[in-house]
Structure formats: structure tokens, C-alpha cells
Design a protein around this nucleic acid. Structure first.
Lengths: 226, 226
DNA sequence: CCCATAACGATAGCTTTACTATCATTAACA
DNA sequence: TGTTAATGATAGTAAAGCTATCGTTATGGG
């Protein structure tokens, strides 16, 4: 499985780049260094000039791949969501029982980095940090057209859709499948954010695990009325 | 009650401004116009220069009140969270039954604008839009000291704390009171965001109400084991 | 009525960021 | 060898973000 997944390349929606960074070695380097810099300094302090210097290249080259740093951040986030979707898919493959399937999916959401796929191209651990701490800053959707917005959120939507399916598999009459899916995904990330940034606002890390929280919310919500 | 609340002024943590905007009429105008501009154009396009022009004033004056636009945004968000806390407090006052108290609180979270307090100073409806759509962009916490961070999030923390209390009142042995509180608050806002920006990702607005979702998540989670 | 002080307005300027334009160089390859 | 695509190098513009300085106004105490 490790071998197989190592060859898997994630296809990112075309609206999230100017020129596909997967199509060249410079593109690969752009992604790799971006993750490092953003993980270290945050999205505000990250500039194309810094990235260019780290690359031994120039701003001009980077602008050939991405319109601006927000788009690059969205690319990274898209890549992350797609990867997460794959991890959910693989973790739930060949499992029959609906509750076991959902349970596995939630375990992936709770600690996505521990399920290793292709580790060479992008540092998944740093990418996870970025998405948890920085990605919402790029969700500055206000100035995007609806079309662009859909492009940007495609990967995220697909992950939501997959969780939604698992929810409906457990309770086909459930009234809030989409909302619960989004809540579980967001909670997984937000609670991680709180744990590191505002630890007084969460119980996670002081005994209860994130996984137990997600499991609890999901399965309590899905219980049929008695 | 309307009269009483009209006189209530919300005290904002000192770390969220340079000079208290509540202390002068120019300060009031700054807040009022900020809300209008941010609601209309978003936080990215909002600049102190624009604000100054709208005020018939200058950048210099605004810098005397706030270090930068992020701080101003945080001020507005703090104001919002404090207001929400008050609304929760008033909505649950003099109610005995724990479940009725929590229920009332969730109703406030679902539609905070419909509970009117002081409407003159800040346009609450616009402020709500801003917090839902823009505030997370100011949560660029990375470059803040822990001290500043605590200042910024004080109002938010207090609201979380109040919800947490209501949760424990319903089930004193509950394992995730903080996490559930944060989840309910975030879900209330995130689902509103989805409803307007990415409506395919939520059920809210297509039958089920936000209030019913929050109610469902909370009370299912709080059910004692059978 | 005058003076001290605080608040505000006006102007200028600096630095950095974000982005564009233009042209030179290299590598691949037919 | 000549063409093309990708990249590098250099330069420059516009705006944002922020600071400094100084003049003006208003206010209230003496």
C-alpha cells in the first residue's frame, strides 16, 4: 500500500494555479519551500520575494505559477483536503460495517498526519500545521467570483461529501448530514488550533482525545430516537 | 428592558485599542464607518485611508485609536462577542430549568441579531455579517505575544465560559464541556457562512433551521448513557 | 479673558509589498 | 542550426502601512 500510494499524484483543480507546479521541478521546489516558510513564519510574513530567495530564483518565476500568495495557499490547502479525502477513502476501504467505516474516517480526521502516504513531495506534518493555523486566512473569499470559489473549494467539498456519505450510511434518515460532516471536519481542525493557541478553551489535551470527541459528537448525533 | 440595555456600554479590553474609541465622538464615528465599509467591501479592501475619507478626517487620527486595521477588526469582534454574551445572559435570566436555559442560549447563538439591545452605536446586523465573513481573517494570531492574544480573546473566552456553564448545568459529568461550547459557537457562525457562501455544503436553509441543528447537537451530546 | 493642554487636522515622507514589463539566457529538440 | 519554452535578471510602478512634524482648534481652569 505504501508503494502504491507513493505513486499517487493528487490532481488539483486548474483554477487554483496559473501553471501547474506539478509539471516541473521548479514547481516542486516552489511547493516544498512554501510549506517550510509558511509553517515557520506564517502567511503574513510569507512573500514571493522570500520564497524566490529560498529557491535561488526570482519573483518573476513564481508569478508564472501562481497569481499571488493567497492562491498558492489555496493550492496547498486543496492539496491537503484531497490528500485527506484519499486517506479517508483508504482507511475505510474493505470495511463493511457502517459504524466502523465512520469510526475509521473520524480517526483519520483526528490525526491525519499519522496516516502516511507520499511523504517525499510535501512535508505533511508542516502542511497540517499550516492548514490548521493559516489556511483560513486565505479563505478571503469575498473578492472571488462564484466560479473561482467553486474551484477553490472543490477539494474541500469532496471531503465533506465523503463524510456525508458515511453519515447517511449510518442513519439514512438523518436530517443534517452535510452540516454534521462540515462540523466534524471543522471541529477536528479547530480543536487542534485551540489546543495549541488557546488551550484554556478546550478539554482536548487534558485527558480526552480529539478522536474521542469526534466519535462522541458523531455517534450521539446519529443515534435514532428511542 | 430595552431602555435599560440602551444604556449598557460594553467594556472592551484595553489591549485591543490604543485610545478608547468610546471616549470621543470621533471614536464613535470610526467604529460606525468601519462597520459600514468592512461590511460592504471586506477586510482586504478596507484601509485607514478610506476610513479617513469617509470620516472627513485623516489617517493620523485613526492611528491614534488603533495600531492597524487588524486591531480595529479585533475590537469590533470583541465588541460582538461581548454583546453576544450579554444577550445570552439576559435571555437566560430568571429561567430555572437547565435545559430551558441552554435552549434559550442556543436560540440567541442561532440568530443573535434578532435580540435587539442598543442599536444606535453599531449596526448589529452588519457587525454580525462581518464577524461571520471577515473576523477569522484578523485572527492572524501568529505574530502576537501570548499576552496580547489573551487580551484579544478575552471576550470570546467569556462567551465560551458561559456556554460551558450551561452545559455543565445540564450534565455535570460531561467530559467535553469546553469543546462542546466552542463547537456550538463556531458551528453557529460557520453554518451561517456556508449558507451564504457555499450553500451546497450545508443543510441549513433548505428546511432544517440553524437553531434546530444546534439544539440537536447539544442535547444529543448531553444525553446520559442509557 | 488668557493660558495650558489635549485632541485633531494637514502635509510629507519612508519602507515594504504586490505586481508588471521587458529583455537576456539556457536547454531541449526537431 | 534554428525554434521554442522555461527561466533568470533588471527595472519600475502603485499602493499600503506606518511615522514624524507642525499647525489649529476647543475646552476648561485660573
Amino acid at each position: 500500500m505504501h508503494r502504491l500510494l507513493g505513486q499517487l499524484t493528487i490532481k488539483i483543480n486548474e483554477q487554483v494555479y496559473v501553471k501547474d507546479p506539478m509539471s516541473s521541478s521548479v514547481g516542486h521546489e516552489i511547493l516544498r519551500h512554501s510549506v517550510n516558510i509558511i509553517a515557520q513564519e506564517g502567511l503574513e510574513l510569507f512573500t514571493f520575494k522570500k520564497l524566490a530567495t529560498a529557491l535561488g530564483s526570482t519573483e518573476t518565476t513564481i508569478y508564472r505559477y501562481f497569481h499571488n500568495k493567497q492562491q498558492l495557499m489555496i493550492y496547498l490547502a486543496s492539496w491537503y483536503w484531497s490528500m485527506l479525502e484519499w486517506k479517508v477513502a483508504f482507511a475505510t476501504a474493505n470495511i463493511e460495517a457502517p459504524c466502523a467505516r465512520l469510526d475509521k474516517a473520524l480517526t483519520v480526521l483526528s490525526a491525519p498526519v499519522s496516516f502516511n502516504l507520499q511523504s517525499d513531495l510535501l512535508n505533511e506534518s508542516k502542511l497540517y500545521d499550516i492548514v490548521v493555523n493559516e489556511s483560513f486566512k486565505a479563505f478571503a473569499v469575498r473578492n472571488l467570483s462564484k466560479k473561482e470559489r467553486i474551484g477553490y473549494f472543490q477539494a474541500y467539498s469532496q471531503l465533506c461529501g465523503r463524510i456525508e456519505e458515511l453519515i447517511l450510511l449510518n442513519n439514512k434518515n438523518y436530517k443534517f448530514p452535510k452540516a454534521l460532516a462540515a462540523t466534524l471536519i471543522e471541529t477536528a481542525h479547530y480543536q487542534t488550533f485551540l489546543q495549541t493557541q488557546l488551550s484554556d478553551l478546550t478539554d482536548i489535551g487534558k485527558g480526552p482525545s480529539l478522536n474521542s470527541l469526534l466519535h462522541h459528537i458523531a455517534f450521539k448525533a446519529l443515534e435514532e430516537k428511542l
